[in-house]
Computed example of a mutant assay.
Amino acid sequence: MPEELPEAEPAFRKQPVSFVRRSGRMSEAQDRAWAELAPQYLFDVPRDVASTSVHPDARLVPAEVYGREAPLTVEIGSGQGHAIVSAATAHPERDFLAVEVFRAGLARTMLDADRAGARNLRLVEANAPEVLETLLPEGSADEVWVFFPDPWHKSRHNKRRLVKEGFGALAGRALRDGGVLRLATDWEDYALQMREVLDGAPEFERAFDGASDPDQASDPDGDWAPRFEGRVMTAFERKGLNKGRDIRDLTYRRVPRG
Rank of each mutant, 00 (worst) to 15 (best):
D48E: 09
I76G: 04
T109V: 08
E130M: 10
V54W: 01
A90L: 15
G77Q: 10
P129L: 09
A141F: 10
S140C: 09
D112T: 12
F102A: 14
S140I: 00
L121E: 03
A90Q: 15
N120F: 11
R94K: 14
S155P: 06
L132H: 03
G77V: 00
S78R: 00
H82F: 14
S155H: 13
V85G: 04
E130Q: 14
R108T: 15
H153Y: 13
E93C: 05
S53C: 04
H82R: 15
S86G: 13
A83G: 09
H55D: 04
L135T: 03
W152F: 02
V61T: 12
V45I: 02
S140Y: 09
G117Y: 11
E75W: 06
V49S: 06
G139P: 01
P71M: 08
V99L: 03
V99N: 09
F43A: 01
V74L: 04
R94W: 12
R115S: 11
P46T: 00
V54I: 08
L136K: 13
A63G: 04
H91C: 02
T89I: 05
D114M: 10
V163L: 08
A90I: 12
N120P: 10
L72C: 02
A58Q: 02
R122W: 01
T73N: 02
G81W: 12
H82K: 15
A83H: 15
R156F: 03
D114W: 13
D114Q: 14
V163D: 02
E125R: 15
E93W: 08
D57L: 14
A98R: 08
Q80H: 14
I84F: 06
V124A: 00
